[in-house]
């Protein structure tokens, strides 16, 4: 099998997606940008949550660090977001390394990590709300400066759309590349059986911290993109439990620990939720979140490996029938 194929596939699909602005109206382009933002964030979360199997419920923290850093530097020092991006990457890496170190240095795992991360991302909401320089509870708005690549701002949706496509293609290529590397094999070993991985000489703590940093940095990049698109950051809109959960829903529904899963999840769920809110929101307040809840419960009960996992299963069954015996591997996309 051609090892280059997955990369070509990502690039070709990305190129095809670039044709969408030809057919979609402004509002659907807006939804398309939202899809790309959440797909990127979900892919970033997938590294720690999917591949390393560490249940972070607080990736909103890194997204918030990214969004706030860039908003603060633009508003306060009039610096271009490209500088903000670099600072955001450094800050989020430090935060992710510190949190990873706190949690992973002891053999405390599983739900503990989930609870700690959720508490920290909520703590960030209260801290930021109490810092007047960061706009307090009201958040920060950035001025619209017109079409300017230097300020990462575009007049319509299309500029953001292409930027989003580039980001998502980048993270997919990155994931695909790492999947052939020692690092991801270590992560998967940690996820499947940590003791065994340790026994085989994997420095599990280091691998997990590294995964947390990678995931955190990418989430911060997603946060920068988010801030630039909305030109507004608020404590609850980029930090906190709700955002953090939203990030991972897409990865879970699409398929944990698969390259394409988070993207598929976002492509299906983001438009769906935008539409339910438009159509049902007034007669049934909360219907959008209720729908998310139902999707989560049903996915976990009947499709625990998500859409890509299910596709994988079906494919394997089909291949099995067409002669080649195959060992059932769990949920992983065996491309």
């Amino acid at each position: 099998m051609n090892l280059k194929m997955p990369y070509i596939r990502i690039v070709v699909i990305g190129a095809l997606i670039c044709l969408l602005p030809l057919v979609l109206s402004t509002f659907y382009m807006h939804i398309a940008v939202l899809v790309l933002i959440w797909a990127f964030l979900a892919c970033a979360w997938n590294i720690i949550g999917g591949y390393a199997g560490q249940h972070s419920l607080g990736n909103g923290l890194y997204m918030g660090i990214g969004a706030y850093t860039v908003a603060y530097l633009v508003n306060r020092f009039n610096l271009t977001p490209w500088v903000g991006l670099v600072v955001a990457i450094i800050l989020s890496a430090a935060a992710a390394a510190f949190i990873g170190w706190i949690v992973f240095r002891y053999a405390l795992k599983g739900a503990y990590f989930a609870l700690v991360t959720i508490a920290l991302t909520e703590a960030a909401v209260y801290v930021v709300s109490n810092i007047p320089a960061l706009g307090g509870a009201g958040g920060m708005q950035m001025e619209y400066r017109g079409n300017s690549l230097a300020y990462m701002q575009f007049a319509g949706q299309n500029g953001y759309f292409y930027m989003g496509v580039v980001l998502v293609v980048f993270i997919l290529l990155l994931t695909q590349w790492y999947k052939r590397k020692r690092f991801f094999y270590q992560l998967i070993a940690v996820r499947e059986n940590e003791d065994a991985a340790e026994a085989l000489g994997v420095d599990t703590v280091k691998a997990k911290i590294k995964a947390n940093v990678m995931s955190g940095v990418l989430c911060a990049v997603g946060g920068v993109f988010y801030a630039q698109y909305f030109l507004y950051v608020g404590p609850r809109s980029v930090f906190g439990e709700v955002v953090s959960v939203q990030i991972l829903i897409y990865a879970i529904v699409g398929g944990l620990g698969t390259t394409w899963g988070p993207v598929v999840g976002a492509v299906l769920l983001v438009p769906l939720s935008e539409i339910t809110r438009g159509q049902l929101g007034n007669s049934f307040p909360g219907s959008q979140l209720l729908l998310y809840g139902l999707v989560m419960v049903l996915t976990m009960m009947f499709m625990p490996f998500g859409i890509m996992g299910l596709a994988d299963r079906l494919r394997q069954r089909w291949q099995h029938r067409s002669a080649t015996p195959l060992v059932d591997s769990q949920g992983g996309e065996a491309s």
Binding site: M1, M5, R9, I13, L16, I17, L24, Y28, I31, A32, V35, W260, V263, V264, V267, L268, P271, L272, E274, I275, G278, I307, M308, A311, R315, Q319, E333, A334, S335
Partner: peptide
């Protein structure tokens, strides 16, 4: 075979999105 099915999934996802958009 792997390749084709992944292509299929991606295509389905794109279709789903355009269908969703159409429905909207």
């Amino acid at each position: 075979k792997h390749r084709t099915s992944i292509w299929a999934v991606a295509l389905i996802a794109m279709l789903a999105m355009s269908v969703a958009a159409g429905v909207a």
